[in-house]
């Protein structure tokens, strides 16, 4: 790392430039700062949730390079230097909702809402890559996003509807 300083307490701090939802942020982070904490604490983008923090639940899902879902709890902020991310705050422009978000509301595809940002981003990545997925492909795309409320049925309906296809019963 070229841009590293050791502060007066002896802590190493690294300069990173990370683009989130189209805006580039240049900040100092510690080696052990996780991307999820960078988003929530340094950028105040609290839509990205912290659940298991071990890569199992998917509530911290963000889109790397605008299209690839990853768990931001397992990525270091220093590793994210120079990369671009979309969080749920950037899934649609300004005050508008994304089509997928509207379908989640229409189908009541959430209860407590904690898994929803991750679900939306996994669904967004799927429909960007594969606009007409099968129900099986939808289930597989959200297999890394755990929901303890809905039983997934309405989430699957919402995503299938968002793809303009028949809604499974």
């Amino acid at each position: 790392m070229s841009n590293m300083i050791i502060d007066k307490d002896g802590v190493r701090r690294y300069v990173v430039s990370i683009t989130v939802n189209g805006d580039e942020y240049t900040k100092m982070v510690k080696s052990n700062t996780l991307l999820v904490n960078f988003l929530r604490d340094a950028l105040d983008l609290t839509g990205t949730k912290k659940g298991c923090e071990l890569g199992d639940c998917g509530s911290c899902t963000v889109l790397l390079d605008g299209k690839t879902p990853i768990n931001s709890c397992l990525m270091l902020a220093v590793e994210a230097d120079g990369r671009e991310f979309i969080t749920v705050e950037g899934v649609a422009s300004h005050e508008k909702l994304d089509h997928i978000q509207e379908k989640f509301i229409e189908h009541g595809a959430l209860q407590c809402g904690y898994c929803t940002p991750g679900m939306i981003l996994s669904a967004k990545a799927l429909l960007t890559r594969n606009p007409k997925p099968t129900e099986h492909e939808v289930r597989e795309a959200i297999a890394g996003n755990l929901c303890r409320c809905t039983g997934y049925i309405n989430i699957i309906k919402a995503i299938m509807d968002a793809s303009g296809q028949e809604i499974p019963m």
Partner: peptide
């Protein structure tokens, strides 16, 4: 292996 997010990383 695992789920999509982990397979991507």
């Amino acid at each position: 292996m695992a789920a999509n997010q982990v397979r991507n990383a």
